[in-house]
Design a protein around this nucleic acid. Structure first.
Lengths: 229, 229
DNA sequence: ATATTTTGTCATAATTCTGTAACGCAGCTG
DNA sequence: CAGCTGCGTTACAGAATTATGACAAAATAT
């Protein structure tokens, strides 16, 4: 599965360098030059991770981070702060604002890649696995199969992709828009409520084995697959 | 029966040594001296495994690995990295890039063989065997015969290769494109729907012995041979 | 050279899947 | 409690995808 990363930095040099480096490592890159356009981008596409410059022309990176972490729709997206200075104090404030990690400029491509992978491993532990297992429900990505220990579950293409996505990111809430972007594709125009219907179909398929309770509705925010009961 | 291995290394000594060793162990060897020619080779033939040197003159082995693992066409080919140093850090980066295993130079022929077999066992458990047996259906790769315990099944050449491939990779879904690439050859232009027809012919041939149910359709994804019922 | 198989494509039938709309209930707000 | 918004459900017709049988060309065998 391709990993989307949003880089927010006002210096185009930095943006380009990072984009070049990360593209070569197989990531898909989105870029924004300030907080305002970052928020716009977030409205369209949901990235898997955000690289956020400490200093930005409009809203500071720290404030943006705090704001994102306070928004139910974005709170689960990991953030790595980019900072020019390496003061202890900054680090603390950054992590305080909700950043998951931080890295001081200048940094090497290798270090950046390593940090990103480390953070991703924490936030989407199932992304690369062949078989995702959440609480007894096993999804075989290569075999395109879903089963519990004693029953096989039949899903249509969309329901499979939906469950696959949710299981790859357990315990995270996704809005209908985000699900449409990530599962249907970003340039498709489809009614938001259609997601409800597919959620319904997925739940129905999981009902016989009582796993439908894992698919939870978060009113006003979207849906989530819960790892525990 | 014959397992193809691609060795990518810029030192001809290493290439020759590895080729010699592995040929004697019954593998068929392809060689490339840099990433560019490796990609060219991959355009012609899809090997069953790739041995990749860490350091290459053009694109580094790590980057090539990442690139291959990001390409749907090659992502399933297991990669073993060859590295001169044995630093822990390298190992991590290698596995991070998608390598399935790694081995440090210099290595013994025996160790190389063992690693290759271990990796192949995971990705294609039946590949090397003379007779593949899945759930009572036996396919003799050398004798080009297929039989159940009490009946022999007659297949045309294409159906045989199709069944052979599917039985070598049980419980995995393959898209029509993948099947065309790996059974018909990489640079043949054939209608995708043609695969359906051959699947149909294969099923028909397996019907009398009730083994047609093993060949399953996965809507929107491709076909799969299921090991269990 | 002739008979027999095998192959790739089509056209058509048979299935399965999808996105919407519509209706009703649940939860929150004031 | 009334009103509003969000969500769950169902039904359905149109789309997509797959199954199947027929056929002519190509390849093999006799």
């Amino acid at each position: 599965m391709s990993v989307n990363i949003l880089i927010v930095d006002d210096e185009s040099d930095v943006r380009e360098m990072v984009a070049f480096t990360l593209k070569r490592q197989g990531f898909r890159i989105l870029a924004a030059e300030d907080s305002k356009s970052a928020l716009e981008k977030l409205g369209e596409i949901l990235p898997d991770l955000i690289l956020l410059d400490w200093m930005l022309p409009d809203i500071s990176g720290v404030d943006l981070a705090r704001r994102l972490k306070g928004d139910e729709r974005y709170e689960d997206i990991p953030i790595i702060m980019l900072t020019a200075r390496s003061e202890e104090d900054d680090k603390i404030r950054g992590l305080d604002a909700g950043a998951d990690d931080y890295i001081t400029k200048p940094f090497s491509p290798r270090e950046l890649g390593a940090r990103i992978n480390a953070v991703l491993r924490r936030s989407a532990p199932n992304l690369g696995k062949d078989i995702i297992n959440v609480n007894g429900l096993a999804l075989d990505q290569k075999g395109h199969r879903v089963r519990t220990h004693d029953a096989e579950i039949n899903l249509g293409p969309t329901e499979f992709k939906l469950l696959q996505f949710l299981m790859a990111h357990p315990d995270r809430v996704f809005s209908r828009t985000q699900l449409l972007d990530r599962i249907w594709g970003s340039n498709v125009y489809i009614e938001e409520r259609t997601v409800d219907v597919h959620i319904r179909r997925l739940r129905k398929a999981l009902e016989p084995v009582e796993y439908d309770r894992m698919i939870q509705t978060v009113r006003g925010a979207g849906y989530r697959l819960s790892a525990e009961e």
